[in-house]
């Protein structure tokens, strides 16, 4: 009998889904509630080039009801198979994605992602943006979830300033690097450092 699939496809998910996804969600909740704060997550071992944090975010949020778009280098056979096995999420074009995953460059132009509808602004995409490094320094952030001011190493500012200008429409971002993640919801006011 031959091995059914590459073993890495079947592994790297949550071993204890209920408890691990609960912890992972709390990290996502804290990140989204307090833009710019760093959260450390564990429990996923997705195939390269995905980071642990991106894998955790997918395992926590994606399932057969959530269309996912893989951008650029993230769109590999191994990643597709891993998502199919662990999340069962359908893979779709950028325009119809609820979750899109890739590097900032690969996700361009971000204007193709769903910004939500004027009467249902929640029906918008969440971008999981893989960054080479993620630190609490760089662009200045203000708004809900931030007491005075926060800083985050955003890949650029113009796109986020434009995204904020559309509020309540807009996409929301999770930034991932290694096992660290941070969030930038559409409500955050971004200013150059």
């Amino acid at each position: 009998m031959t091995a059914p699939q590459d073993a890495s496809v079947l592994s790297g998910g949550f071993v204890e889904p209920a408890v691990q996804s609960a912890h992972a969600f709390r990290a996502l909740l804290a990140a989204m509630a307090r833009p710019g704060t760093m959260q450390t997550v564990t429990g996923a071992q997705p195939p390269a080039p995905l980071s642990v944090a991106a894998g955790v975010a997918l395992l926590t949020l994606a399932d057969p009801t959530v269309p996912v778009h893989l951008a650029g280098a993230a769109d590999t056979e191994a990643v597709r198979a891993w998502i199919a096995f662990h999340c069962g999420a359908p893979l779709v074009a950028a325009e119809s994605a609820a979750i899109a995953l890739g590097t900032w460059d690969a996700l361009q132009p971000v204007s193709r992602f769903s910004m939500g509808l004027p009467d249902y602004p929640d029906r918008s995409a969440t971008l999981i943006v893989e960054l080479p490094a993620l630190t609490a320094s760089g662009a200045h952030l203000r708004g809900p979830g931030i007491r005075d001011r926060a800083e985050l190493s955003l890949p650029e500012t113009a796109a986020f300033i434009a995204n904020r200008a559309r509020f309540p429409l807009g996409f929301d971002c999770l930034f991932t690097s290694g096992s660290t993640l941070a969030a930038l919801p559409r409500s955050t006011i971004v200013e150059n450092a």
Partner: peptide, 24 residues
């Protein structure tokens, strides 16, 4: 299941919670 709800239901609620935080 832990905390009664099945995982798919929890994911659905969790996604809604993140969007709710993004649009206060």
């Amino acid at each position: 299941n832990f905390a009664y709800l099945d995982e798919q239901t929890k994911r659905m609620i969790r996604r809604a919670l993140l969007k709710a935080l993004a649009i206060p």
